[in-house]
Write a protein that binds this DNA or RNA. Sequence first.
DNA 1: AACGCCATTATATCCAGACAAATGTGCCAG
DNA 2: CTGGCACATTTGTCTGGATATAATGGCGTT
Lengths: 229, 229
Amino acid sequence: MATTYRDIKADLLHQITQGQLPPGSTLPNEVELAATYGCARATVNRAMRELADDGFIERRRKAGSRVRDAPVRQARFTIPVTRQEVADLGATYSYALVSRDVAPAPDRLRARLGLAAQDHLLHLVCMHYADGAPYQYENRWINLSATPDAAHFDFAQSGPNEWLIAQVPFTDVQISFHAVPADATLAAHLDCAAGDALFQVERTTRLDRQAVTFVQLSYRPGHRMTTQY
Amino acid sequence: MATTYRDIKADLLHQITQGQLPPGSTLPNEVELAATYGCARATVNRAMRELADDGFIERRRKAGSRVRDAPVRQARFTIPVTRQEVADLGATYSYALVSRDVAPAPDRLRARLGLAAQDHLLHLVCMHYADGAPYQYENRWINLSATPDAAHFDFAQSGPNEWLIAQVPFTDVQISFHAVPADATLAAHLDCAAGDALFQVERTTRLDRQAVTFVQLSYRPGHRMTTQY
DNA sequence: AACGCCATTATATCCAGACAAATGTGCCAG
DNA sequence: CTGGCACATTTGTCTGGATATAATGGCGTT
């Protein structure tokens, strides 16, 4: 009988979801579990550590491991590259650069990104299409103080997202999801009516506190962002 | 010099974010790294496994470990209980049950949840308020075949979310985020105009393939869901 | 009664070695 | 040239042991 950490994890999880180990109860300690499963303590440790990572149990030295009252389950989702996202739909991806200019940061962005007054931003507006139909409107600002190379790259052929991912390291990301009514500009580009409800993602990317880029992605009406765990 | 798996993880991560290990490059294998860091292979293994879990590298037996092209950086966020979500805003939470009835599953839900024709659902509509103003409209169906106890609980005082979390185990969750225009019902409950863009979350919860509950949460206009990593 | 110190205990991490599983690579036969 | 098989390499996991670290609960002192 091979007892793997997966077996132990599955067994404990089963006991939790079936109610033999109700919320709040304390699990046996690692030594006891190792004895009952007939394996090394490290194996039990890995199983329990993963259960803790997954939010099912809470572990404290000396106090032992308790089943969480409310599983603090976390959804994880991947931040897709639009080209890939469209390809995964089985559609043909195409891209267009709408506008490009360099300007000092508008006040609201300065505040949001924590930029100095003299910092200049590269402002790009791009469209992404799926099978020729508008898919996503990308409104992006790139901090030229953090990424001077971006000024010399012409984003006519491919989107800034792909370039940035390949060229610029980052450490922190902040994301916001929300719904907005389409304004005239969005309506024109996404081929929808003004006032239509659009799903929007805003993302700020930083490298060690310094803002690298801020992007606002507006999706065509009806877009759904889905995740599973 | 104590080399912990955290040190190794931090060092490798630093090399990745600083560009010494560009996307697509191959990392040294575990044995080599163990030698350079002067520690056991298990320690290197743990560091690299966590980097892989976090989406920074990709590991394949025999092929080695590669830095991911597009860091499949995953946003993790917690699924909040509305009461807590409102409290975190510094607002006073209140709750009201709008309607409650038991009925066979409508076709679209049957398909979505994989229910049999004879399965009955408890349908609850609830409102959540922050400082007395509408915050969230909750439209929930509970599978009474999976959770018969729900039929005997009166949700007049507190929301089904809190009850379900405490009473019903689950294993799988599927979430969708999107934007919808407010219909007449939503507009009335959320105190906004019909057609306003609303952020909506749909969540299906299962226990071992069997659907437990499906909920549609519609937030007041302007709501933002934010995460950071 | 309040406070702080310390032994106890459970988890956290590490080590060195071993075997298992997967999967590129290259050789060989057809 | 092609398909398939053996092999080498790399990661995946387990063992059984060790030390480190944190937290609790009791004990003694003030």
